[in-house]
Amino acid sequence: MSFEEVKNTVKKIYEQVKSENLEERDNLINILHAIQEHYGNYIPLEAAEVLKELTGRPLSEIYEVLTFYTMFSTDKRGKYIIRVCKSLPCHVTGGAAVLKSLKDVLGIDYGQTTEDGLFTLEESSCLGLCGVSPVMLINDEAYGNLTPEKVRKIIEEIKEKERSGVK
């Protein structure tokens, strides 16, 4: 991916987000969300350079926003981001065993991506689904009442789906 490509893409997204919002001063976080979605779960560092030009804000300021929020990543992440809730309700209802089985079945630790580029494992603050704890979020979909077996099944199903090429 060349700097030119990032420049053009970011510029397009910037104009798009700008046209959607009534307020103009504040859209950096929205733009970063859109860039991340475009590149599939990460933001290339070059984007910060481009945004500096477009917004007129200092690079340091853009970079600090980009790195402050845990949902933004400058590293390439998997197609499926698994966010495991690590809050107390999940902890007291068996979250540790669920997490362990996830790590086992994926063969990765927090912050890592599987070799096939499919999964990235992250921890999340409370997902607000405490009634069905333990819980995890895979991209935008939530899974509740987890057990080590259920976790294995969910991951297997996604892998199977990917193998058979279903989108």
Partner: peptide, 10 residues
């Protein structure tokens, strides 16, 4: 009018 702003995990 109201606009939606989305957090980013903080």
């Amino acid at each position: 009018d109201i606009e939606v702003r989305i957090g980013a995990g903080a």
